[in-house]
Design a binder for these strands. Structure first.
Ligand SMILES: Nc1nc2c(ncn2[C@H]2C[C@H](O)[C@@H](COP(=O)(O)OP(=O)(O)OP(=O)(O)O)O2)c(=O)[nH]1
Ligand SMILES: [Mg+2]
Ligand SMILES: [Mg+2]
Ligand SMILES: [Zn+2]
Length: 574
DNA sequence: GCCGTTTTCGGCCCGACTGTTTTCAGTCG
């Protein structure tokens, strides 16, 4: 049982409890537990197996009751209380609150008074006028719900960080033309650089908020206005993304930026800390006896509760406060720390650019080195090369290198890890390479033990430097291979193998939480792009963002080193 | 339901916008 599955079950229970109008704090307790479990690097099932209920209760937000539920879920796949709740409310009913504007109260009213228990029935009911006369329902509400249903049908859920970035830049560019705006900031999950983004959150400061809102909702990208007030508006954009905007006075910028960056749990926790100190934190500032005492900058907000500045990528409402209090926050890696890219494809396999085109581009990016790592024979769809074919490429690289100074092209390959854990090239050939990146490209559905053994066997080969995209997940498309991540990490640590943080926006693999776990175990990470075109060498920024979310410092990442040190690290296993 | 360096009971973040409401509940950030 995966953590994500357990989290999903608990989240669903929180929704079921909402329908029953349970104590809102109890509902929040289930939601908190679910969120915390999602962000957990260790397998709950493994923790339970080794430490029982007691180990579960050590996780924040999990107490006696939820720990027992989790035990039951691990043992039977479900738990009694949930099964009972589900008898009352069918699955299709749960989906109703996913429609914008419908919450648990409205859904219950529709169920009780009209027997509506699915989005389909709701749509029919509105169109046939069956909701006329229902308390709290009028023409506008019906139309809003219909539009909400249409919107829901068109969207696929959360967006990749890269897509959201691009679109947010467009909007922010447009907003830059609004005269009344002072400062602009992309906030929310975008600023925290989460791997997926729910909506675009933008903060503006202005002395004339109404004028700003007026101009904002008239932007050409805006399709529909969900809400418009003087300090806050929400719209649906033409690409069906939602955008939320807040406008505040410049003297509130810090507090508003902090609020709008979140995440929610982080906000709640820092506000609780303020309450204990006799203060109040809101998006408008830090207040003592209704008098603003701070809030112009984010630093002031943190300082008011005795914390040093916490970078947005760490604001998850977990243990960042502890670190900030003790002054133990990491010196997070920055993009300019990166000196090269160790996983790139050229026209020798399925890349679009020649090695020299890639090299020229990398030099413009001020890199000191790159590794060309084309596919090997078993990955035929990606034009993987035989041993004979790659020899030509290696000679070509030698030739090119003689023409560069202060820049080096490393000879590499992205070598297939075959199902038995052996590699697609013989050791005699691997020996000729500077960088061996090893990866699984076939038989993704192997059993957990087999897949773990497969990758661990590969790590035990002394020529293997880096395991590429270690879990194989593709965001929104393919779940990770079944893996014992702890075993993988342990073997990486024992063998001195590096793990990749693949920067492709739909991979980001290792994920943020796994990076953090790897760091704790002393494993070094290679942040690579796996670029198949020279322009996508810029995907490095997403890798660095994810690394920052994983608390990584420059020293945890091998490709922040100058070439001489890097070469030493690459030859350390041999 | 969870939690505690004052607490094992009694708190639990704080605010904006909408629609249909004669004064605020519901939903959302
Ligand atoms: N204090 C407080 N702040 C909140 C609450 N809900 C949201 N926020 C703040 C923190 C969020 O990061 C920020 C933006 O809200 P969003 O719903 O857009 O969430 P966020 O961007 O974090 O994630 P997303 O990718 O959009 O799902 O607003 C809340 O209930 N209380
Ligand atoms: Mg957001
Ligand atoms: Mg938002
Ligand atoms: Zn690759």
């Amino acid at each position: 049982m995966e953590n994500s599955e357990i989290a999903k079950i608990l989240w669903e229970v929180s929704e079921l409890l909402e329908f029953k109008s349970e104590n809102p704090f109890k509902i929040r307790a289930y939601q908190k537990a679910a969120r915390n479990i999602e962000g957990l690097p260790l397998s709950l099932e493994e923790s339970y197996k080794s430490g029982g209920i007691k180990a579960l209760k050590e996780i924040p937000g999990i107490g006696e009751a939820i720990a027992e539920h989790i035990e039951e879920i691990i043992k039977t796949g479900d738990f009694k209380k949930r099964k009972e709740l589900l008898k009352e409310f069918p699955k299709s009913f749960l989906e109703m609150i996913e429609v914008q504007g419908i919450g648990p109260k409205t859904a219950m009213l529709l169920l009780k008074k009209r027997g509506i228990d699915s989005i389909e029935k709701l749509e029919k009911a509105i169109k046939s006028g069956a909701l006329k006369g229902l308390v709290g329902f009028g023409e506008k509400k019906e139309q809003n719900i219909l539009q909400g249903i249409t919107h829901k049908k068109k969207t696929i859920g959360r967006h990749l960080l890269s897509e959201a970035h691009e679109y947010a830049d467009l909007i922010i560019n447009q907003m830059g033309k609004i005269k009344e705006i002072d400062q602009l900031l992309a906030a929310g999950s975008l600023r925290r650089q989460q791997e997926t983004i729910g909506d675009i959150d933008i903060l503006a400061t202005s002395k004339n908020p109404e004028a700003v809102m007026h101009a904002f909702v008239k932007l050409p990208q805006v399709k529909r206005i969900l809400a418009q007030g003087p300090t806050k508006s929400s719209v649906i954009l033409k690409n069906e993304m939602q955008a939320d905007i807040r406008v505040v006075d410049p003297k509130c910028f810090g507090a508003a930026a902090h609020y709008f960056t979140g995440n929610k749990l982080h906000n709640i926790k820092i506000r609780e800390m303020a309450v204990k100190l006799g203060l109040k934190i809101s998006e408008y500032g830090v207040f003592k006896n209704d008098k603003q005492i701070a809030g112009k900058t984010e630093e002031e907000v943190f300082e008011s509760v005795g914390l040093s500045y916490i970078p947005p990528e760490l604001r998850e409402g977990s243990d960042e406060f502890e670190a900030a209090k003790k002054g133990n926050l990491p010196q997070l890696i920055n993009y300019p720390d990166i000196r090269g890219d160790l996983h790139i494809h050229s026209t020798y396999s399925d890349g679009a650019n020649t090695i020299s085109e890639i090299a020229e581009f990398a030099i413009k990016m001020e890199y000191e080195y790159i590794a060309i790592t084309d596919h090997t024979q078993s990955t035929r769809v990606a034009r993987g090369q035989t041993a004979r074919e790659i020899i030509k490429e290696l000679e070509h690289i030698d030739e090119l290198n003689s023409s560069y100074k202060n820049f080096k092209i490393l000879k590499g390959a992205e070598v297939d890890i075959l199902p038995d854990g052996t590699l697609d090239y013989k050791d005699e050939l691997l020996k000729e390479l500077d960088v061996v990146v090893a990866a699984v490209h076939s038989r993704f559905k192997m059993k957990k033990d087999d897949m773990t053994k497969r990758i661990c066997t590969a790590m035990k080969n002394k020529y293997v430097n880096i395991i590429s995209h270690p879990t194989g997940r593709i965001i929104r498309r393919r779940p990770p291979y079944e893996l014992d991540m702890e075993e993988i990490l342990k073997t990486a640590s024992d063998t001195g193998t590096y793990l990749e943080l693949n920067s492709q926006p739909d991979r980001l693999d290792l994920s943020d939480v796994n990076c953090r776990r790897a760091k704790e175990m002393g494993i070094l990470i290679a942040i690579n792009t796996d670029a198949h075109t020279k322009e996508t060498l810029y995907f490095m920024q997403f890798g660095v963002s994810t690394a920052r979310r994983g608390w990584l410092e420059a020293k945890n990442v091998i490709n922040t080193n100058p070439i001489a040190k890097l070469m030493k690290l690459l030859y350390a296993k041999r």
